[in-house]
Design a binder for these strands. Structure first.
Lengths: 309, 309
DNA sequence: TATTCCGATAGTGAC
DNA sequence: GTCACTATCGGAATGAG
């Protein structure tokens, strides 16, 4: 995944053309957006969409220092010698850099920005909640995830940022689905009955339904960590590889890094095979072979049951 | 090929329901037919659409004696012991029997009927002219063509009938395309100038553009000989197998019968491979691989050049 | 494994 | 190899001045 934003055409325009773009930061107008279900994330997190001036960790601050200047258009970055040879072919492959360099330009997409990362809504979400966590470090963001996460400091930073992202995602899941959840309803009904807080039933822990990880063979050039709800219910989920990229070992949880040198998930042949595997329901294990449509309608049923838990 | 008629639904109805069908023989109303380009064939041949009372050849007359009674619905015929086990599965596979048994019911489709054959327009023509010649002998019409044409008397009869069919087909081609033909135009212009008949240029011989043969693996149960113009220009030509079934050795000219025992065209594997072969233009030999659409548009160009000859 | 468009390929159902 | 429908699979373009 890690897709182009819906207003992709704007990305390639020269800086001057951006004057017409709304740049207001703290209101969330969702301009002409087809999605309206993410309101809670947008509004809940809008106060953090600007870059935090207070960098808490000095090691990180050093590592994450901004590039010498914002890149113009899609030329390769010159700041790192080992990246000079990495030419990003095709505009779409490098499109995520716009969010990294100019998060303030995308108030409808950007949920949170820190000196280290930008958290955006995936433009083509493959589940009820689907966010992308983008590291801002030019020294890392064009590396393959396996390589980038071999750097312990970088990995530690990404884990911390991802934990925050997962919290926001879980909160949004709760906002959207809480009214359908037996567990959550039990808690809110107890609340309505005036039960004291230390006596309340725990309510549903939606963080269990959020997964954090990367694709073994990303198509987008910039490193992006998926923060995605478990359901895989989305109109944008359109074919087998969409599904299998999140539901086979092709999806590598961030928690699994750093990968061992001999980890099978590094092997291209293995990962290509994963994408072509028969479809298996993530919830009940039922096999669908190549019958994607049948899986899709089954996922609708599972979604109802899952959100009712 | 050898397809169902357009008014296929009527076929499966009981005899009583056929009362509403027009049974007039010598006018050609083309009732609700989408095709209008076959008018010449219909009108030119309408005087022969009834079964000829005068059977010219006694051997044939004996061989072709009608079945004891017209079959009802699609039950297998009981008249021949060796056919008792041949159950026709699927209504469509046996649909051609209606034309054989009741040619008078299909004035819009039947071009000619004799005691030995019925000649119909293919309901899904794969070229400008596409006719089917159906033998009426129950002793032969459910046999595989290779087997049926091993009978010399049957083969001789079919060749004679096919020659007549090809004449009609060539005449219809001339009617439809003569005005586009340089050769034909030269003749008609000479005619207009009052050139005496023995001095007229010959005009185009359209019989060279008519091919007569069968498919090695027919899908329709009843033996049918294709009488088809060379162009392969038709909206009904929709995929590779349509084309290759007429433009590889899968198409066996009637002239090639009887086949030798070891003729490779008897082999199933060989013929399946023919259907999957890369597409090759029948006129210029250009190869199109699996690009059916590209072949289709190329055939449009070839059609223009071909009819201009 | 970015999407989208187009087209080729494959399975089924037809009563 | 009957058709017609659906769906799966597969390649190519995607920008730009």
């Amino acid at each position: 995944m890690a897709e182009l934003a819906e207003d992709f055409d704007d990305f390639a325009q020269p800086e001057s053309a951006q004057a017409a773009q709304p740049t207001t930061e703290n209101d969330t107008p969702e301009p002409a957006s087809k999605e309206s279900q993410h309101d809670a994330i947008s509004s809940a997190a809008s106060s953090t969409t600007t870059i935090k001036p207070d960098a808490k960790r000095n090691a990180f601050t050093e590592m994450m220092r901004p590039k010498p200047k914002p890149s113009i258009s899609h030329q390769p970055h010159q700041s790192m010698a080992h990246k000079a040879s990495q030419v990003i072919r095709g505009v779409w492959r490098g499109a995520l850099v716009e969010y990294i360099d100019h998060p303030e330009r995308f108030p409808a997409q950007v949920i949170r920005a820190t000196p280290y990362t930008v958290l955006i809504k995936d433009a083509f979400p493959k589940a009820t909640i689907h966010l992308l966590l983008l590291p801002r470090s030019p020294a890392h963001y064009l590396l393959h995830p396996h390589t980038a996460f071999a750097d312990p400091a970088f990995l530690a930073m990404m884990r911390e940022e991802a934990a925050e992202a997962a919290k926001l995602a879980a909160a949004e899941l709760a906002r959207q689905l809480g009214s359908f959840s037996a567990t959550s309803r039990a808690r809110s009904e107890a609340m309505d009955r005036g039960v004291s807080y230390d006596q309340l039933p725990p309510g549903r822990d939606y963080s269990k339904d959020i997964r954090v990880g990367i694709h073994a063979h990303p198509s987008m050039a910039h490193l992006h960590v998926h923060v995605i709800s478990r359901d895989m219910r989305s109109e944008r989920l359109k074919h087998k590889k969409h599904y299998n990229s999140f539901n086979t070992p092709f999806f590598v949880p961030l928690a699994d890094y750093p990968l061992a040198e001999d980890d099978v998930r590094r092997e291209t042949g293995y990962q290509n095979a994963n994408l072509s595997k028969g479809l298996v329901c993530w919830r009940c294990g039922r096999e669908f072979g190549s019958q994607f449509k049948a899986l899709k309608s089954h996922l609708e049923e599972e979604f109802e049951a899952w959100r009712a838990e």
